[in-house]
């Protein structure tokens, strides 16, 4: 019993330490700029990342919102930051109107151990924040993709997890092959860095209506992957449009059938 009580005390100390440590986002310019004076709610938004990432070039990340909103309030945007990276921006997601629960997954690049931050902004201009510490044992910046990857977008993929049904959330997975050159990676041959080449955005429309979009930054892994939810009210077609920083566009479509 004494051992258990001691353990409890240590856990309490740990939890207190964590609560204090979580305020570190207040010292991050990118996060404070995104908050723009809003005081974020600390409960409701959850960020899932492994405690230890053995390959920082591609770390699974999930962000979920299960908190309480006011009547009529919905989540408009979710933004991800990796403040320990040379550039902190990872991705911004814009959600369709009426989104009250969020379940987004992606793969991010972490150059070193750090605290990753997620923000959600609602239609009533409220902010929610979640943070998560990740230890990175191999830096994401130094792992090349092996063979020289093509600098253009290729092989867009899309799939639904499970069967679509009317009015029910449907998980969409999508990925496109692209090296997402950060502009920070040394070129093995010369003294310069490999030129930046990023996929800039993904836009999802369901029967012509925009339901989800994403803006990508250097913190999103090569071969950008996004998993998000839609709520189809009728059968039709989901159209995904990827655009890179040069304005090139790749489209892919998936029928939605009940």
């Amino acid at each position: 019993m004494i051992a258990r009580a001691l353990l409890g005390t240590f856990l309490l100390i740990l939890m207190t330490a964590t609560a204090v440590a979580d305020q570190r986002w207040q010292r991050e310019d990118s996060v404070m700029a995104a908050l723009d004076g809003r005081v974020p709610v600390l409960e409701g938004l959850a960020l899932e990342l492994p405690l230890v990432a053995e390959d920082g070039s591609s770390v699974n990340l999930a962000v979920k919102f299960t908190g309480n909103l006011e009547p009529g309030e919905h989540i408009q945007t979710v933004r991800l930051f990796a403040p320990g990276n040379p550039r902190p921006e990872v991705a911004d997601y814009s959600l369709s109107a009426h989104t009250t629960s969020v379940d987004i997954a992606t793969r991010v690049r972490l150059s070193e151990s750090q605290q990753v931050v997620a923000l959600a902004i609602t239609s009533q201009d409220r902010a929610f924040i979640a943070t998560r510490d990740v230890r990175v044992t191999v830096s994401g910046c130094l792992v090349g993709t092996g063979e020289q990857a093509a600098m253009t977008m290729q092989n867009p993929r899309v799939a639904f997890a499970g069967q679509a049904s009317k009015g029910q959330p449907l998980t969409v997975r999508t990925l496109i092959n692209h090296p997402m050159e950060t502009g920070l990676r040394p070129d093995g041959e010369s003294a310069d860095e490999v030129e930046q080449q990023l996929v800039e955005s993904l836009t999802a429309t369901l029967n012509g209506e925009k339901v989800f979009s994403s803006r990508f930054y250097t913190g999103t892994s090569a071969n950008p992957y996004v998993q998000f939810r839609i709520v189809p009210e009728q059968t039709g077609e989901l159209q995904l449009t990827w655009q890179d920083q040069n304005g090139d566009v790749v489209e892919t479509r998936q029928p939605v059938q009940f």
Binding site: D55, S57, T145, G146, A222
Partner: peptide, 9 residues
């Protein structure tokens, strides 16, 4: 399930 693995090169 990953893009990079041990001793890949």
């Amino acid at each position: 399930a990953k893009d990079n693995f041990s001793k890949q090169g």
